[in-house]
């Protein structure tokens, strides 16, 4: 993002924004996955960078995280697509 012109003229929203329960929950999962060496922070970042740009800007900060976490857990085989579908109630 450094110096990128697209955002260069944007004002900075300096107001405090409290984190939601969703945000804190995702953050906590990220920490646990990192602590147990299931997924590194660099893997999280790669997964965020892989989100298509339009989608990236539609998602909030922690929405990007849960998406990257899901991407990584699938890619690493920690969970399977079938398991995820079942858990989502889409089986």
């Amino acid at each position: 993002m450094g110096g990128v012109s697209k955002y260069f003229c944007d004002a900075v929203d300096t107001e405090p924004h409290a984190l939601s329960d969703f945000d804190k929950h995702v953050d906590a999962i990220r920490q646990i996955l990192g602590g147990k060496r299931v997924m590194s922070v660099d893997e999280l970042r790669r997964g965020i960078e892989a989100i298509p740009e339009a989608e990236y800007h539609r998602l909030s900060y922690y929405q990007r995280w849960i998406r990257s976490i899901t991407f990584n857990l699938l890619e690493k085989g920690v969970i399977t697509e079938a398991e995820l579908r079942t858990a989502l109630g889409e089986a």
């Binding site: 993002m1 450094g2 990128v4 955002y7 944007d10 929203d13």
Partner: peptide, 12 residues
């Protein structure tokens, strides 16, 4: 904080 994560802060 929210601003630290914003594209505007990081760009500028």
């Amino acid at each position: 904080p929210f601003w630290f994560k914003s594209a505007a802060y990081r760009s500028r």
